[in-house]
Design a protein around this nucleic acid. Structure first.
Length: 599
DNA sequence: GTGAACCGGGG
DNA sequence: GTGTACGGTTCAC
């Protein structure tokens, strides 16, 4: 039996002999061998939870019929803190869940079904407490081949697991990141991948490698050492594939690469008859439907589209690469207008030379942005426990939700379903924080007050959580926190699910801040700082999950209660300050400015 | 005034 | 893939 320490980059499942097989794409990041590993787990089975109705005496008999359920088991799970006897139904294949869940839900003996919409690979990570981008220990046997893996790469190891991977101590890991960018010759409007050829492929990395592959070279041969001139577009694409494999890249980043670069190069590769077998298993680029947009996915090579990521981290009017770069680094990029690139290319003059510099500048800027933002995303990946590929495409609310799904599993709580068919049209938007418009003028001697993490603190101190919210009349009000304005009642005991999760997040953050103060190692300090930021973000997002109607823990009452208490706190504090002779100049949500009024 | 349609990023 | 974005603005009537 082999025992191998390795880092899980990605996960999916395949079907083998009609059964699902989990595939973990891993690499020996902290080991000189740097081998790529596909670990296979054939033992994991899809399941859902079934809540029996009041008339449930025939439930087991009902479920025996035609639902491809291979096993039924009574388990005890908490549903909003209340322990219940629930049926766990195990299926042969994840697709059987999709096929039968609606008919099962409609049975008279069934009240509701739960956790029937959690993707199989996410279920695997949650149930086995496996953290992507962290090191694990695999135990299993190497096998020579596996039907569905067609890689020609001899160094690839395929490992058949005989138990789930074991978590190891979290270690700092340096990933190899490469950015890429295409320039194309498009004289007629926007690029058309069936007609307009790729003229340059730019590559830059966090390990010293920089290159522009092109069919031309600079006219002036100075400063052109980064250029590799090849004979045709076909060779250009082949070299792109070659460098990605040669450098054993872990993460590939682009800017709008889900929508432009990857679809474009895939089409050009097809036209030029080049095999784009970038996947560890020998597969190509797949486009995964995410709503109306596609995400470009490569097996075992994590693709992060920074455009999507940056849109979430900055509030800008536009999110062009130029704009984002300027905002982050205060420097202008080399600019060539998109509609003139073909003219620069055709000019065979100084303008062509400028186009080469522009191409390099694009990928260098992209890698700089990646180095700035990926550490935070790697930390969030570890906290949330879902793959970086997925996490980088999630809204912050979704990140918080998957974190809660993971925590619910640990607490033996059943995960609430996504709200269905809530009519929001006759419901007012929740009133936000208190804002006092600033008094016009130049003010001196201002004093600033602000509440530290106002909303997370309120959630914890008032135990605001849907599982302890009571809407019926109660006998003894002193057992409840009662919200201002709407008088919602939250039980003082037990602690609500979400307040306890936020409490854990904030405690973890305090621990990390303490470690930060105690260490003199600058690299470690930086890494800890990123971790505490990630935890702060997560805590602050928990308020949002109450307010958006498509989230599992949606609760309009909780959202209202939080902001109502927030307004009360800030107004009370302003009033106190005014009693001491201060005058409020400006206030917004969690803080205000006052000045001493000498009159 | 209202709901449908479009747009972002990329060249 | 145990799935189907999103929020803001402009257009069309």
């Amino acid at each position: 039996m082999e025992k191998i320490k390795s880092t899980i980059l990605d996960i999916d499942y395949i079907t083998h002999k009609n059964k699902p097989v989990i595939r973990l794409f891993a690499k020996e990041i902290n080991n000189d061998k740097q081998r790529e590993i596909i670990a296979l787990d054939e033992s994991f089975e899809p399941y859902i939870y079934i809540l029996p109705s009041n008339d449930s005496k025939d439930i087991e008999k009902d479920l025996e019929e035609d639902f491809d359920i291979i096993n039924l088991e009574w388990v005890i799970k908490k549903d909003f803190q209340i322990e219940k006897k629930i049926l766990k139904a195990i299926f042969k294949h994840p697709q059987d869940v999709a096929k039968h869940r609606d008919s099962i839900r409609k049975l008279d003996s069934v009240k509701d079904i739960k956790e029937a919409d959690i993707p199989f690979y996410r279920r695997y990570l949650i149930d086995n407490d496996i953290i992507p981008m962290d090191e694990v220990e695999f135990s299993g046997e190497f096998i020579n081949s596996y039907e569905t893996i067609k890689s020609k790469d001899k160094s690839l190891k395929i490992l058949k697991l005989n138990k789930a991977p074991q978590k190891l101590q979290n270690k700092y890991q340096k990933f190899k990141i490469l950015s890429f960018d295409l320039e194309v010759r498009n004289p007629n409007g926007m690029p058309n991948s069936s007609k307009d050829p790729i003229i340059m492929i730019g590559l830059a990395s966090n390990f010293g490698f920089e290159k522009v592959i092109s069919t031309k070279n600079k006219i002036n041969s100075s400063n052109n050492s980064f250029i590799e001139t090849v004979e045709d577009e076909k060779t250009m694409i082949e070299r792109f594939v070659y460098y990605l494999k040669k450098h054993n890249v872990d993460i590939i980043v682009g800017y709008n690469s889900d929508n432009f670069d990857f679809p474009y190069i895939k089409e050009r590769a097809k036209i030029n008859n080049v095999e784009l077998d970038l996947g560890v298993d020998g597969s190509g680029i797949k486009f995964i439907r995410r709503g109306y947009a596609n995400a470009a996915a490569i097996k075992g090579l994590i693709h992060v589209d920074l455009y999507l990521v940056m849109r979430r981290y900055m509030a800008l009017d536009r999110y062009t690469l130029e704009r984002v770069y300027l905002e982050l680094f205060g420097e202008e990029k080399i600019d060539v207008p998109g509609d003139r690139i073909w003219e620069f290319w055709d000019s065979d003059s100084d303008e062509l030379d400028k186009l080469f510099d522009y191409s390099l500048d694009d990928v260098v800027s992209t890698i700089k942005i990646a180095e700035q933002i990926l550490p935070l995303n790697l930390e969030l990946t570890r906290i949330v426990g879902q793959p970086l590929f997925d996490l980088s495409r999630m809204a912050t609310g979704q990140q918080a939700e998957w974190y809660l799904v993971k925590e619910a599993y640990k607490d033996n709580e059943v995960v609430p379903n996504k709200p269905a068919g809530i009519d929001l049209s006759n419901r007012d938007d929740n009133e936000g924080g208190y804002v006092k418009e600033p008094e016009v003028g130049l003010h001196e001697n201002l004093v600033q007050f602000d509440f530290r993490s106002l909303y997370p603190s309120i959630i914890i101190s008032k135990n605001i959580s849907p599982d302890v919210l009571v809407l019926d009349d109660v006998e003894n009000l002193s057992n409840y926190y009662v919200s201002p304005e709407h008088s919602y009642k939250f039980m003082k005991k037990p602690k609500g699910f979400i307040p306890s999760v936020i409490g854990n997040v904030l405690n973890e953050r305090s621990k990390i801040k303490k470690q930060m103060r105690e260490t003199d190692d600058e690299t470690q300090k930086k890494s800890l700082d990123v971790q505490q930021q990630a935890l702060k973000r997560l805590a602050n997002t928990m308020y949002g999950i109450y307010g958006f109607s498509r989230f599992r823990w949606y609760s309009f009452e909780c959202a209202q209660a939080i902001t109502a208490w927030g307004r009360e706190y800030i107004k009370d504090s302003m009033k106190k300050a005014e009693e001491y002779g201060f005058k409020t100049i400006y206030a917004d949500t969690d803080g205000f400015y006052v000045k001493f009024d000498s009159n």
